[in-house]
Amino acid sequence: MKIEAGKIIEIVYLDRSGKITQRNIEVHGVRDGLIRATDIGSGAPRAFRESNILAWQPTKKGVTAS
């Protein structure tokens, strides 16, 4: 499976300061190793480097975009 636009996924992510976070995101686009998405928890637009995603999976039922 690959990360695709239009999907809501759960990620484990290593941020630039070295902190590992877990987030649910709604993917808007994937290009050149950069994932543009909305963080479901905060509602904020975000960009994630694909190389810093340590793990991901489709979200469990019940997690929706606002």
Rank of each mutant, 00 (worst) to 15 (best):
G6A: 04
K7C: 10
I8H: 00
I9S: 08
I9P: 00
I9A: 05
E10C: 04
E10Q: 09
E10S: 10
I11R: 09
I11W: 01
V12F: 08
V12R: 15
L14K: 09
L14M: 14
D15P: 03
D15R: 01
D15G: 01
R16G: 07
R16Q: 14
R16L: 08
S17C: 07
S17L: 12
G18N: 03
I20L: 13
I20S: 05
I20T: 15
T21L: 04
T21V: 03
T21N: 07
T21D: 02
Q22E: 14
Q22W: 06
R23C: 09
R23P: 11
R23V: 10
N24I: 01
I25P: 02
I25Y: 02
E26F: 08
V27W: 00
V27G: 06
H28T: 01
G29H: 12
G29R: 11
V30N: 13
R31N: 12
D32H: 05
D32C: 02
G33C: 11
L34A: 11
L34W: 15
L34M: 15
L34T: 15
L34D: 12
L34K: 15
I35E: 06
I35H: 00
R36I: 07
A37L: 13
A37E: 14
A37G: 08
T38G: 00
T38N: 03
D39A: 05
D39M: 03
I40H: 02
I40A: 07
I40T: 04
S42N: 03
G43I: 10
P45E: 14
R46W: 00
F48L: 05
F48C: 04
R49E: 12
R49M: 05
S51C: 09
S51D: 15
S51F: 10
N52W: 08
N52K: 13
I53N: 11
L54C: 06
A55N: 14
A55R: 15
A55S: 15
W56I: 03
W56M: 00
Q57P: 01
P58N: 07
P58Q: 06
P58I: 03
P58L: 06
P58E: 11
T59K: 08
T59Y: 09
T59Q: 09
T59L: 03
K60A: 13
K61D: 09
G62T: 11
G62H: 12
G62F: 09
G62Y: 11
V63K: 00
V63A: 02
V63S: 00
V63M: 02
V63I: 14
T64F: 04
A65W: 08
A65K: 11
A65V: 06
